[in-house]
């Protein structure tokens, strides 16, 4: 159904051993990313969005973290079977990453040129001189004025939005096939956010890069993703195309999430819809639907087992007992 799959995640499980118990940060996540696609990964803090992606990059600190199961296929290679050296070629080369906080992800002691040239020389096997030329080109592309001069500046000489542009330039400088953007705009103001999102969108189209967009902001997802995965407590609870998810959310959590955001385009309501209760503690989670204490449609069944995946058409998948009859009927 999907063409040219470049990244495939199957049943990924990442657990952390802590003093209080085993934290199942990611518990059986599967998704596919095809060439040129923008995939949104939405969820609240602690839902496992970031950990899934750090696992894909094998960046989980171990101990305490441990990948307990599942496979990540990048092209035809299984990422967990690669040696550290091979992995280093992929990281930053074939898969680029943008982090949330542009201040902590750039080294404050090194000039931008040093940091960018290092990456390019490592992955592209070119001379330093050529690498610098490439770096200036990239800075130009992301819209840094006077890139030729500014490449010799230190990170603190750039504003937050500019630093995020530098991060994007760096991530894209080695022509990655996949770009993982982990909350790239959460630390930025709305007008700067609009600039950065537009930039990521236009560059990914131009360079044919597939993007995994991790965010908690439904508006960001609606604006730029092709497909959306909604995560809750370490699992994907709903998948679908962008339009399907927003027009017809099936999982009660997705429905609640969409309803609880105040909207500019809708008339003002007296009260906002709100999902009662707190997100669950993922330590020693029992085998049940983790959303049932907050769910308005909760049934007895929800307390005893995790719901199976129900498919609707080619693109939609929902994990909820409400749709279980449909599975049984087939």
């Amino acid at each position: 159904m999907k063409k040219d799959i470049i990244l495939k995640v199957e049943g990924l499980k990442t657990y952390f051993n802590t003093d209080e118990g085993v934290v199942k940060a990611v518990d059986g996540v599967s998704f596919e990313l095809s060439k040129g696609e923008t995939l949104g990964l939405v969820g609240e803090s602690g839902s496992g969005k970031s950990v899934s992606n750090l696992s894909i990059m094998s960046l989980i600190p171990s101990p305490p973290g441990k990948i307990m199961g599942g496979k990540v296929l990048f092209g035809d290679k299984s990422i967990f079977d690669l040696s550290e050296e091979e992995m280093r070629n992929i990281r930053g080369g074939k898969i680029g990453m943008i982090f949330q906080d542009p201040m902590t992800s750039l080294n404050p002691f090194l000039r931008i040129s040093t940091q960018m040239v290092e990456t390019i020389v490592l992955h592209k096997k070119v001379s330093k001189h050529e690498a610098k030329k490439r770096a200036i080109e990239m800075l130009d592309l992301v819209g840094i004025p006077k890139a030729y001069d500014r490449i010799n500046d230190y990170p603190h000489q750039f504003s937050g939005g500019m630093r995020q542009r530098v991060m994007i330039a760096m991530a894209l400088s080695c022509d990655p096939e996949v770009l993982i953007a982990d909350e790239p705009t959460s630390a930025l103001d709305v007008t700067i956010q609009a600039q950065i999102l537009e930039l990521i969108q236009s560059l990914s189209k131009k360079l044919g890069t597939a993007v995994i967009m991790i965010t908690h902001d439904l508006g960001v997802v609606a604006g730029m993703c092709d497909n959306v995965n909604v995560m809750y407590a370490g699992r994907i609870v709903e998948k679908g195309t962008n339009d399907e998810i927003f027009a017809d959310p099936k999982h009660p959590y997705t429905q609640g999430l969409i309803k609880s955001v105040p909207r500019l385009d809708k008339p003002k309501q007296k009260r906002l819809y709100s999902i009662e209760g707190q997100p669950p503690n993922v330590i020693d989670l029992p085998e049940c639907c983790p959303f049932f204490p907050r769910c308005e449609f909760a049934m007895d069944k929800c307390k005893t087992a995790y719901p199976p995946v129900t498919k609707f058409g080619d693109t939609r998948e929902v994990s909820c007992w409400l749709y279980e009859e449909k599975t049984r009927g087939e």
């Binding site: 939005g161 709305v190 609009a194 508006g219 960001v220 609606a222």
Partner: peptide, 25 residues
């Protein structure tokens, strides 16, 4: 510009929106 920069959680609206992108910081 501020109003047009706010993302709205509806892909239908987002596609047809004209966004005023401010330059600079």
């Amino acid at each position: 510009a501020l109003l047009s920069a706010v993302p709205i959680p509806d892909p239908e609206i987002e596609r047809n929106r004209h966004r005023i992108i401010l330059t600079g910081d």
